[in-house]
């Protein structure tokens, strides 16, 4: 079992799996949180669906970043790769996996609070989006480093 971890190809694929898996869980939780808040809002005012949808989509990006990194690792890996490459790709996957997981959940909570905000003041949508976008910065930095590790 342990010798698996000395296989560079396995390490690279593990990195890809973590990237898409963990960032995906984070996004699912984040989008879910906002979805629950949205349902409450729509019961009161169905006409706000469009605005709510924008907020709900925001925590979904981490999952996409995870997918992008995982695909890049996957397409650049081969069974005969070197150990250095294997470890590099593993690290690349880890970066977006960790930051994506945490930031998507936190971003979901900010966006869910934003749903509460637009329920009372629909004109505040822009600020709600800006608040949520602040959280995403760290996922963006992580995906940047992940991609730089893969490509450089």
């Amino acid at each position: 079992m342990l010798e698996l971890f000395t296989d560079p190809y396995f390490l690279a694929l593990l990195g890809a799996a973590l990237a898409v898996g963990l960032a995906g869980i984070g996004s699912a939780k984040g989008v879910g949180l906002v979805g629950e808040a949205t349902a409450g809002l729509l019961a009161e005012d169905p006409s706000k669906f469009g605005r709510a949808l924008v907020l709900q989509a925001i925590p979904g990006t981490q999952g996409i970043y995870g997918l992008v990194v995982a695909l890049m690792i996957f397409f650049n890996s081969a069974p005969d790769m070197t150990m250095v490459d294997g470890v590099r790709y593993f690290a690349a996957g880890l970066a977006i996996a960790i930051a994506g997981y945490g930031s998507a959940i936190r971003q979901g909570r900010v966006a869910a609070a934003g749903i509460g905000l637009i329920a009372k003041r629909p004109d505040m949508l822009g600020r709600a989006i800006a608040s949520a976008a602040l959280v995403e910065t760290y996922a963006i930095f992580a995906v940047l480093i992940s991609l730089l590790i893969v490509f450089l």
């Binding site: 992008v68 695909l71 963006i140 995906v143 940047l144």
Partner: peptide, 15 residues
């Protein structure tokens, strides 16, 4: 913070 321009551009291209 403007590094996000690259990150989002890459996400588009890669997908």
């Amino acid at each position: 913070s403007y590094a996000r321009i690259l990150a989002l551009g890459l996400a588009t291209t890669v997908i």
